[in-house]
């Protein structure tokens, strides 16, 4: 049975379940709209939803790029320089003790109501998984590969950056990919939380506004669009990573989504 077929069955099953819950509970549409109301809202307000979705998507992608660059950069610096290991690593770890959501109002205060504060939020939330998994990969390089490289360069202190480029970095790519997958999954959270705290556009903003006006069907439609966006982004990133790291063996092939 193909993956697409299984996916379609799952989605259809969930929609049926949703409709059954609506019928059994007898909840009014302003509390729990059914699939039909939601899809109707999705179609009739598609222009509105698409416009806001584009804003959220831009924020997610911006955060993904920035967070990945900063996270990967930090990991390399920490891996390569001993003082950076001693000073930056504790900061990196404790930075995660601060709840990112608590900083959201500050980000809006400092970066404004527009996209910058949302990109900042997504960047913050992505930074740690990318940095920590890439760093993990960089420090767990097979020691005998490193030994071999050192006999080739003429000693442990010779050409550390060549060893980084040709051995450590490629060896750490599978770990980096794990971090990037997590990042792709959490990036939408960052963007939407940013929008909730204060914004004039984006799916998070649209959901808040629809909620306030008891347009629950529109709120559900926006939520659906956001979920579709997040899932598509995850699978796209996962697909690209698999293509980019073909030598990484998958010992649990049935986990393929």
């Amino acid at each position: 049975m193909s993956r697409v077929f299984r996916g379609a069955v799952t989605v259809a099953g969930l929609i049926v379940l949703w409709q059954v819950i609506v019928l059994v509970s007898g909840a009014p549409p302003y509390l729990l709209p059914g699939p039909i109301e939601t899809f109707t809202a999705l179609v009739t307000r598609s222009g509105l939803i698409a416009g806001h979705a584009l804003v959220t998507l831009s924020e997610i992608l911006g955060g993904l790029v920035l967070g990945t660059l900063l996270g990967a950069g930090s990991a390399v610096v920490i891996a390569m320089f001993r003082p950076a290991r001693r000073w930056l690593l504790p900061i990196l770890v404790t930075s995660q003790a601060i709840p990112v959501f608590a900083i959201a109002p500050l980000l809006v205060l400092w970066l404004g109501y527009g996209m910058a504060s949302k990109i900042g939020m997504a960047t913050l939330i992505i930074y740690f998984p990318v940095a920590s998994s890439f760093l993990d990969g960089l420090r767990r390089t097979e020691t005998r590969w490193i030994d071999l490289a050192h006999t080739m360069t003429g000693g442990p202190r010779a050409r550390p950056f060549a060893v980084l480029r040709h051995v450590r970095l490629p060896a750490a790519l599978p770990a980096f990919a794990s971090g990037l997958r997590v990042a792709a999954a959490v990036a939408p959270i960052g963007a939407v939380v940013g929008e909730w705290v204060g914004s004039g556009a984006g799916l998070g903003y649209l959901m808040l506004r629809a909620n306030a006006r008891v347009q629950t069907d529109l709120m559900f439609a926006a939520l659906l669009a956001l979920a579709a966006l997040a899932v598509a982004l995850y699978f796209l990133v996962d697909f690209a990573l698999r293509k980019a790291i073909p030598w990484q063996p998958d010992t649990l092939p049935d986990l393929d989504p």
Binding site: M152, T153, A162, V163, H166, V167, W247
Partner: peptide, 18 residues
């Protein structure tokens, strides 16, 4: 190195030395 072809593995030393 699993990401390099047989040929590139053979040439690893030269790559590392630039």
């Amino acid at each position: 190195l699993p990401w390099l072809s047989a040929r590139d593995n053979v040439g690893l030393g030269a790559r590392l030395r630039g």
